[in-house]
Amino acid sequence: MGVNESRENDVELLVAFRNEATREVAFTRLVRKYQERLYWHIRRMVVVHEDADDILQNVFIKMWKYLADFRQDSGLYTWLYRIATNETLSWMDTRKRFAAVSLDGNESYFEDRITAQKDFDPNKIEWKLQQAIATLPEKQRVVFNLRYYDEMPYDEMSRVLDTSEGALKASYHHAVKKVEEFLKK
């Protein structure tokens, strides 16, 4: 499904959502359409399934509450990624305050969560990569995940994160170098 086709579907679903009679059906279709992408976007940041689930539910509850007022300045996909990213970062901020740990830089908080995962194997490259990503500052981690895993174009990412494309490219390149260094250890 191309981006344009996807956008057209979103517009149709949005029209259906604004109609009281078809709202719930449209909502269900929208959740089904975006749930996996958003879930993995969140899960890669917070690691633990239960936390990702809580955040994802908040994202969709916000969608239910505010979608009728969505102005379509950006695509629905961008809007949902924005909500998911903001919800995730604010969850991390809250966790940082309550756990009194810094989530920036080389703190071990997320690395510990990774090693506590079922099936964790430090010899497997996919786990090592997750450990490397966990050492990145949180905003750089978002950029790396959106680019590497979601393969999001920089212009789209610029709208999601409200940051210039140049700054995002620089951030991604720094992140790649740091990940490489970690993997070489």
Binding site: R32, Q35, W40, V47, H49, D119, Q130
Partner: peptide, 13 residues
Amino acid sequence: KIGMPFGGQQDYF
């Protein structure tokens, strides 16, 4: 591409 190692919950989605 290196995949995600996290296991999903069955029937979660």
